[in-house]
Nucleic acid binder design. Structure first.
Lengths: 195, 195
DNA sequence: GATGAAAAAGTACGACCGTGCTTTAATGAT
DNA sequence: ATCATTAAAGCACGGTCGTACTTTTTCATC
């Protein structure tokens, strides 16, 4: 990895952290340059525009999410166990990292602002949702979940649990947030389970 | 109502609309002045600072939410019917107005940014949550819901359903978002119901 | 309709925004 | 060790930001 790529990654790491806290659109090149001890123009040269920077940050966060949440889950046994692993990874990572809630804040920032960023957010959500639904469906064919269980509804509900978790955890600072999320998840699983 | 109050309200209405779309912190005085056909300084005089403007927008949206969602529900019969009315009002209003999702976007914007705005957001959430819990509890004492049902968990779950609805409705533009929300809500009610 | 009060506009400010263009410094392959 | 390439810095720009201060216009009351 060359020097360029190295600092580029360092910038993105900082950027993802800031963006998760303050939002993707309040992310500023000057501020980011100060944080990484680069000059404004030095940093800017790595990306070609602010929008490209935002997209790069999004890609960075997405890779991190895939590495830390999705992929580990796919290495556990199919069915309920895998769905459960996905949830636990998600919850665990969300507590000590900010990468996840970048998507939460970015989504409400750009949900009414057409452009490449919004398009990417939609794609990312679809991908994430597809992963969840696929895991759930293998649980249906494997007999863990009811035949008539609705995978799309499950994905909707699971997202709701996680969104409410972010709210409770980050805004309210409620230490029982993970507990609440787990109880909601158990109820959701129980409703989907066979027999 | 004097002229001043009148334009102040017009400004707030616009501001709430913009803030719901683009976020409370990207809300700009210049842009807002242009939308209301006021001069920057003319508009600014109504508030004393940008932060005061943000707080005023928040108060405006909160009043609207109380008027359109909370209060109408309290005029329906206690118990499950009232909880159901709350949900339906919330869902209905959220589809054609932006006032609601102002809180959603603002919460993720300010969840890590200490100050009066964040403090107000926390208070608002607590108030909303308290209303939900109280309605739920009268449903417990009235026999609609199980004795051991957890009101706080119910509030957590309901918020999750609504947050996921905003996500699905606004970001993805999915027309089935209300249907998904309703199904999730029915499941939630069924789990809480007595027998 | 005159007059004092309230509302809006005008003007100016320092700061920071994103983004070009040019120059210097660091890097890596030979 | 040399030298082309690449990374970073320097500098400048037009704009917009929030916020003061002053002046003009509009309003309500008698």
């Amino acid at each position: 990895m060359g020097k360029g790529e190295q600092t580029r990654l360092a910038v993105l790491e900082q950027a993802a952290d800031v963006a998760a806290r303050q939002g993707l659109s309040t992310l500023t090149i000057g501020d980011l340059a100060a944080r990484t001890r680069l000059s404004k123009s030095g940093l800017f040269a790595h990306f070609q525009s602010k929008e490209a920077l935002q997209l790069a940050v999004l890609a960075f966060a997405r890779d991190k999410f895939t590495d830390e949440v999705i992929r580990p889950a796919t290495r556990t046994p199919r069915g309920e166990a895998r769905v459960r692993a996905l949830f636990e990874n998600w919850l665990e990572v969300s507590q000590h990292s900010n990468a996840e809630c970048l998507f939460v804040s970015a989504s409400s920032e750009f949900d009414d602002q057409p452009g490449p960023v919004r398009d990417q957010l939609v794609r990312d959500h679809r991908d994430c949702s597809d992963s969840i639904m696929q895991m759930f469906r293998t649980g249906v064919t494997g007999g863990d979940f009811r035949e008539d269980a609705d995978a799309e509804q499950f994905s909707y509900d699971l997202h709701g649990i996680m969104l409410s978790f972010f709210h409770t955890h980050r805004l309210l600072g409620d230490p029982r947030a993970p507990e609440r999320a787990r109880r909601a998840f158990e109820t959701l699983l129980a409703a989907a389970r066979a027999h």
